Simulated assay, not measured.
Amino acid sequence: MANQISSTNQETTSFSVELVSGPTARGGVDDFELSHARRALARLKALLGRQGLLNLLAKEIEEGNAFLRGKAKMSNGEFKSATTVLAVRGIKAAQFVRWLEHNFSNESVLLAAEPEHYVIAPNPNFTVTVVENLGPYICHVRLPAYDKAARLSAEGINELLPESEYPFRRLADLSLPDGTVVGRVLTQFGDTDQGFNANLTCYFPVACPEDIFEHHRQHLAVEFRNWIVAAAAAQR
């Protein structure tokens, strides 16, 4: 006799945890956790130091750079773009750009903007070494110092916005230490009545999977939001 399997509908009960009392600081549990996580991460990075982090991540960096090099070769110089847009109130584009230019050699400020920033260090040749996640990969890339990035013409850049509306525009190649170009970053800032808009575009080889582009859309949102918050605090 065959086994008979019967199923019944079961009611699902929603689950939640509510903070009723205790902490006197503003915010909720998520805010407290984020603050504590940032403090712990900053402490660990400081204790390891720049070279300690590079040593610790050496194998992952080798694998990540090999991934990017392979995708660049497969793509034959063709890139795909992904864009993140932030709307800012209470600070103007020129104020933010001046703050970023002033702080682009301040590694502690740059590292604090994104948990997956491991090294951001200036080089003698006016480039900046960046070690960060691109999707699941940790990569070591180089880009021009912020004030050395290219002033733009409209030729060949579909994502370029009108200069009259976005006068603060920079384009920087992302290269591996061996010189292989593996991407670009285009930043465009333009004032609004309330503040400014930040239009942030990343380019990676077209052979890269979608999760690389989606991760970097998120990455740009996190790091520029935090830099803008820091710039606004500096104005006060």
Rank of each mutant, 00 (worst) to 15 (best):
F126H: 13
E132Q: 12
E107F: 02
V131T: 01
A113F: 06
L134R: 03
V130C: 15
V130F: 10
E107Y: 00
F96N: 05
H102L: 11
A112K: 11
S108R: 13
L110N: 13
N133S: 14
G135Q: 06
N125Q: 07
I120T: 01
P122H: 05
F96W: 09
E132S: 11
T129Y: 00
V131D: 01
W99K: 08
N106Q: 12
E114V: 06
V109K: 04
P124D: 04
A112Y: 13
S108Q: 13
N106V: 14
L100W: 03
A112H: 12
G135N: 06
E116T: 10
G135S: 05
A113I: 05
W99S: 06
N103H: 15
T127N: 07
Y118F: 05
P136T: 11
L111I: 09
V128R: 05
S108H: 04
L100S: 14
E107M: 12
F104C: 15
V119K: 01
L110Q: 15
N103Q: 15
T129K: 12
F126R: 13
P124Y: 13
L134W: 09
Y118V: 01
P115E: 04
P136E: 10
Y118W: 01
T129I: 03
S108W: 00
V131G: 02
N123S: 02
P115D: 04
E132I: 03
L134N: 09
E132K: 11
V128E: 13
V128C: 09
V109H: 10
A113W: 04
V128F: 09
N125F: 03
V131M: 03
N125W: 03
Y118I: 01
F104H: 13
A112R: 12
E101L: 06
H102Q: 15
L111N: 04
P122G: 06
P115G: 04
E114K: 00
E114D: 15
I120H: 02
V109M: 12
W99A: 09
N103I: 06
T127C: 07
W99E: 02
A121T: 11
W99C: 06
E114Y: 11
P122A: 10
Y118T: 00
P115M: 09
L100C: 07
T127P: 04
L110R: 13
S108N: 12
E116Y: 07
A113Q: 12
E132H: 10
